[in-house]
């Protein structure tokens, strides 16, 4: 999925998370807070693996980020993490560098959307 296709994916699918957790709002808020707290560390690990040209590390970390994003409905960032993992597998380093530049913006966008829900 390229950047244009990813713009059609919602940043934060809150309705999907609520449905998957059977409207357990306490559990949802807890996982959103942990996600917002922990994701910067995971992104740092992803960037460190990329900087070290450790493609296996990039793939594993992208898989972790994809899983975390899927659980909290961060669907645009999940799609980006999926693309990072696939790109690492094909060792397309130019494309990977471009995706690394996108990940901070994706995280920022989902944080803003989640913050609104957490504060509501």
């Amino acid at each position: 999925m390229d950047a244009d296709a990813r713009t059609n994916v919602p940043v934060f699918d809150v309705a999907g998370v609520k449905r998957r957790l059977m409207h357990d709002d306490a559990l949802m808020l807890m996982v959103l807070q942990v996600f917002m707290q922990e994701m910067p560390k995971q992104i740092e690990q992803l960037k460190a693996a990329h900087a070290a040209a450790d493609m296996a590390g990039v793939k594993l970390q992208a898989h972790s980020i994809k899983g975390a994003c899927g659980n909290v409905g961060a669907t645009a960032m999940q799609a980006l993490a999926l693309e990072v993992g696939i790109t690492a597998e094909t060792c397309n380093r130019n494309r990977l560098a471009g995706l690394m530049d996108e990940i901070d913006a994706a995280q920022h966008a989902v944080y803003i959307a989640m913050q609104k829900i957490a504060e509501a």
Partner: peptide
């Protein structure tokens, strides 16, 4: 489960 968020969701359920 190695991924924290998935682990917390499973624990919560």
């Amino acid at each position: 489960e190695d991924e924290l968020i998935s682990r917390l969701v499973l624990q919560g359920i």
